[in-house]
Write a protein that binds this DNA or RNA. Sequence first.
DNA 1: TTGTTTTAAGGTTGGTTTAAGGTTAGTCCT
DNA 2: AGGACTAACCTTAAACCAACCTTAAAACAA
Lengths: 226, 226
Amino acid sequence: MKLLIIEDDKHLSDTIRETTQGMFETLQAFDGEDGLFLAEQNIFDVIILDIMMPGMNGYEVLKELRSSKIETPVIMLTAKDGIDDKIQGFKVGADDYMVKPFHREELLLRLEAMVRRAGGSFKENTLYFKDLKLNLKTKSAEINSEAVKLNGKQYDLLEYLINNKNTILTKEQIFDRIWGFESDTSTTVVEVYASNLRKTLKKYGYDNYIKTFRGLGYMLSEDGDN
Amino acid sequence: MKLLIIEDDKHLSDTIRETTQGMFETLQAFDGEDGLFLAEQNIFDVIILDIMMPGMNGYEVLKELRSSKIETPVIMLTAKDGIDDKIQGFKVGADDYMVKPFHREELLLRLEAMVRRAGGSFKENTLYFKDLKLNLKTKSAEINSEAVKLNGKQYDLLEYLINNKNTILTKEQIFDRIWGFESDTSTTVVEVYASNLRKTLKKYGYDNYIKTFRGLGYMLSEDGDN
DNA sequence: TTGTTTTAAGGTTGGTTTAAGGTTAGTCCT
DNA sequence: AGGACTAACCTTAAACCAACCTTAAAACAA
């Protein structure tokens, strides 16, 4: 699970990061521009977004993000308690809203609710694609009650693909999501893992749901023909 | 999306280029003459045009451009803040105006507004021509919900044609837009791709919307007869 | 050791480009 | 008007090349 915190107050950002560690793998952006750039990679499960920031503010970031058709759930943060802010926040597509300062537990509850609502799987720890069943907790997979042996990164790839079925994911997105931004390995590992995953899924005829789009990326498609 | 920056200050030009990367594919001209020449190719979606330049100044460039019936949206740049400049800029057909120095965000917002206003499709990621629907994000096409198989350059050509339907595009324009100025392949590829595109669209009876004008170029026309 | 991840190398696929011959639409001449 | 001529354009197929696939060995971690 990946969380992006866009917040110019470094101290608060770090506090959130610590509060949520264990639940999320966190990335921090300290201004709107960087935040937007990261968010547009579409590799996060939730975004915490401060409104008052120098330069590009939270509303602008969110507006941009939504108009790029990125639907990652967003929790807006603000110091003000005015109702106007809330209205404006929701109008541009915020999913939830928190007034600073807030309690640890409130944050955790809202995060949990957020992810769950987004079809996500927090307490729900299974994910399905046709007859393929992923257990998120144990990072294991099975097809028709038969266990499928997947190693760590293969599993990660499959989970990411299922979470984004029917949309093309670029090699860069996949790489950033699974290997992380600062990893210095080459993005060709993605090809290797795509190949590995297909190979292990072939046995069940699930390999040809993984389509490659030359020059664009990969997609897990619900129809296996072509 | 293509952006042309006509600005003699190389540093500023580069800054703009970096600011807009990801949004636009950028070309730079460092004086008015070169700028005008490039702009007249009519392959750009927006032009950023500095006023104060040695030689041909911004007003002159814009005036020439408009009298060649090129209606690409133009944002004028100036160091002065006088109201007179604004008036003169708009009189010769500028679409927007910015005073140096400006903020990153202001530029981005204006660019976006500009392209959107021009009927452009910025964050809109679908484009229509009759029953043909293009998905800009996945670079795919469908007619009446049936997928049409187009490879990269074929898709690019179709998109360019639709964006300029009912206007004739020369082979040079098409070539510059899709293959790029510095490409060293011959412009006859355009003919090949026109042929290919017609062939794949023939199945749906859409081939005869692509008209060729001997000695002039091609046009995507909304009426299929002659 | 054992299993996983990364790198490297060669093979394959399929989109792109080139080239060559065919077709069409204008132009000129009678 | 009709026919020959020509330049522009069309079509096809083979050659080329970049993206992608696959495999296996090397590096790393448990």
